[in-house]
């Protein structure tokens, strides 16, 4: 499914990744943990094709992301990858339903159809009542559930979440994680969640630890 091999990445003189490798399988959920500055988000953005590693490769279904042009990487990301950020990062000027329908519209789905599918998903996540409100007028928990809906509405092969519950209280965090894992399991996508929270990690199938820019070898990883 999604494989990263020996990724290195530096921001100027500061190394962020030092040979990180990771493999995600369809239908499997993975927690990526590590201390602040260990390179978790950098790894996630390399996996998403947002950042191109200095060395190493990321392959999605056998396609090397680093070999693609920016435009093609964007298209691949749009079709095959869903992303959730810590603060949702919804477009503040759009309504909740417009945010969720956005990936579908970008993929060329007709507006009415995109809104219908977005509305269904929002209803499933219990936030249909705020569908027509701007994201800046809803609570953090509601916004984050909308962000989850936006990440999975087009049924991507991989969902990457960067501390999706980091800004939420425990109740909302629980609800968001339940929604995320339920939806991902149903679609059979691979899920990677960057988190500091052991409780969040407990929702997921396996745990990967990143330290100083490299994945700490575990029995599971070594076996892969």
């Amino acid at each position: 499914m999604l494989t990263a091999r020996h990724l290195t990445l530096s921001y100027g003189p500061t190394p962020a990744l030092r040979g990180a490798s990771l493999h995600l399988e369809a239908g499997e959920s993975t927690a990526l943990m590590g201390a602040s500055g260990s390179g978790k988000s950098s790894l996630l953005h390399c996996l998403a094709g947002v950042l191109v590693p200095d060395t190493g490769d990321v392959h999605l279904d056998g396609v090397a992301l680093s070999g693609l042009k920016d435009r093609d990487r964007s298209r691949l990301r749009l079709e095959r990858i869903g992303v959730v950020f810590q603060h949702g990062d919804l477009v503040p000027e759009l309504t909740v339903i417009e945010n969720v329908a956005l990936p579908l519209q970008l993929l060329g789905v007709k507006r009415a159809e995109a809104r219908r599918r977005a509305q269904d998903l929002l209803a499933e996540l219990g936030v249909a009542d705020v569908a027509d409100r701007r994201t800046s007028t809803v609570s953090g928990g509601q916004a984050q559930r909308a962000a989850v809906a936006r990440a999975v509405v087009h049924e991507p092969a991989v969902v990457l979440a960067d501390e999706p519950t980091g800004a939420l209280d425990s109740l909302n965090a629980e609800a968001v994680m339940d929604a995320l894992t339920t939806l991902v399991r149903r679609t059979g996508a691979a899920l990677l969640v960057v988190t500091h929270d052991n409780l969040v990690a407990s929702h997921l199938d396996r745990l990967v630890t990143l330290s100083d820019g490299a994945v700490v070898p575990t029995g599971q990883e070594a076996a892969r």
């Binding site: 998403a48 920016d70 964007s74 079709e79 970008l106």
Partner: peptide, 16 residues
């Protein structure tokens, strides 16, 4: 910049 960066992360093309 940040808003556009997150839209790009979703797969939105620069052209859009």
């Amino acid at each position: 910049r940040q808003e556009n960066a997150s839209l790009r992360a979703l797969g939105t093309s620069p052209g859009v």
